[in-house]
Design a binder for these strands. Structure first.
Lengths: 157, 157
DNA sequence: AAATCATTGTTAGACGTCAAGCGATAAGTT
DNA sequence: AACTTATCGCTTGACGTCTAACAATGATTT
């Protein structure tokens, strides 16, 4: 279905750039919704899943700040989500000797077991939604989006 | 910058479909952030701008439910944002005779004046972020995203 | 060594989103 | 006409996000 129909527009979109931007935002919203539906079955939110998934594949030691950079959210958000995950016993904050300002964050055994259960379902989802895109199409999509992101951050960044 | 670098991944993404999905979500997040920064200058949030913008271009009479469909949010969300906009005097709820269940929503004079001020800046933003995409590239992008959205909603929908 | 600057994690408050459930009303059915 | 079902807008509570500010700590500079 075209974006016009989906958004129930009463006139055609005349600006293709505008349509492109709305498409991106709308698609991301739907992807999040689909993700949330899956994660809820495991008593997780999307943000909580993202933390577990990141931690599973990290190869070095991460502070909360590192996690925030990886997930592209503020430190305050990390604190909040980590509090939830810690209270569920899925994640641990480790004191770091030599630097009393930071914590190192890691999965607990329960956290690892849970993410190992969710991940295959998540990957199924991914391939379900992108099934109709062959490799060159994916590459083109990725490249276009990368260009958009470049123009999102002010030149001074 | 590639997604790998942006997300500070410690190993390359091996799954191009996964990379595509993350690109979409990440790009939408950045677009929202850029939008929020603009809207804040006018004491608006993104959600509030979306309502004003929709109302400006509607050509028929809309209920809150219609607005929700257009913006793809629940009725509860519409109620909440509309309360804020109404308290700022930017939007009005009109009683509908013949149907006491619904309201018709419209811009006030102040609402129209404000959206008229914000819109040119918004359109500048749009073209800034998509400047490097020519028309065929935009069309391909839009089409790919449309395919993803198709696969987001279960076949039964 | 002392003063300044930067980083880290936390808190508080505002906001939008959702799910679930509610009462009122409308529409459809028997 | 009476009953049933559907829709509408609202409320509540949970959640994640952000900004702004803060204290503690670390890093730099003087």
């Amino acid at each position: 279905m075209s974006l016009e129909q989906e958004l129930k527009l009463e006139r055609p979109m005349d600006d293709i750039h505008h349509e492109a931007v709305l498409s991106i935002v709308r698609t991301a919203g739907l992807l999040s919704l689909k993700g949330a539906t899956l994660f809820r079955q495991f008593d997780l939110t999307e943000a909580q899943f993202n933390v577990l998934f990141s931690l599973k594949y990290k190869e070095t030691v991460w502070t909360q700040s590192d996690l925030g950079k990886r997930l592209v959210v503020t430190r305050a958000s990390v604190t909040s989500v980590l509090d939830k995950l810690e209270s569920k016993g899925l994640v641990e904050r480790h004191v770091v000797e030599g630097n009393r300002r930071i914590y190192h964050v890691d999965l607990t055994k329960a956290g690892r077991e849970l993410i190992d259960k969710v991940e295959p379902r998540y990957r199924e989802n991914i391939h379900e939604v992108t099934a109709s895109l062959d490799r060159p199409t994916c590459e083109a999509l990725i490249q276009s989006l990368e260009r958009v992101r470049q123009n999102c951050t002010r030149p001074a960044d």
